[in-house]
């Protein structure tokens, strides 16, 4: 609890590459709130596998193009 998960992500850069998609729009598209997208982008929350797939599929990339393990 409170420890940052060792998972990195490129959600913010992917979102910006996709026409500066807003956090709210991304959240709505994948079924979470804007605050959850903010927490994911800040690395404070690791989304569920389902939400991770939804994000990757929305951006037409693989799961590992969005998420990575810290240090890899």
């Amino acid at each position: 609890m409170g420890k940052r998960p060792p998972i990195t992500n490129r959600v913010r850069s992917l979102r910006e590459k996709h026409g500066q998609m807003s956090q709210a729009a991304l959240g709505e598209a994948v079924g979470v709130t804007r605050h959850t997208i903010i927490a994911i982008e800040q690395g404070r929350y690791s989304p569920s596998l389902e939400t991770s797939f939804r994000i990757a599929r929305l951006f037409n990339v693989g799961l590992e193009d969005v998420f990575g393990w810290e240090g890899d």
């Binding site: 959240g27 079924g31 979470v32 709130t33 605050h35 959850t36 927490a39 929350y45 989304p47 569920s48 939400t51």
Partner: peptide, 11 residues
């Protein structure tokens, strides 16, 4: 809008 929305996974 937020009031009517279901809690998401983090919430």
């Amino acid at each position: 809008r937020e009031a009517n929305a279901r809690a998401d996974e983090r919430e």
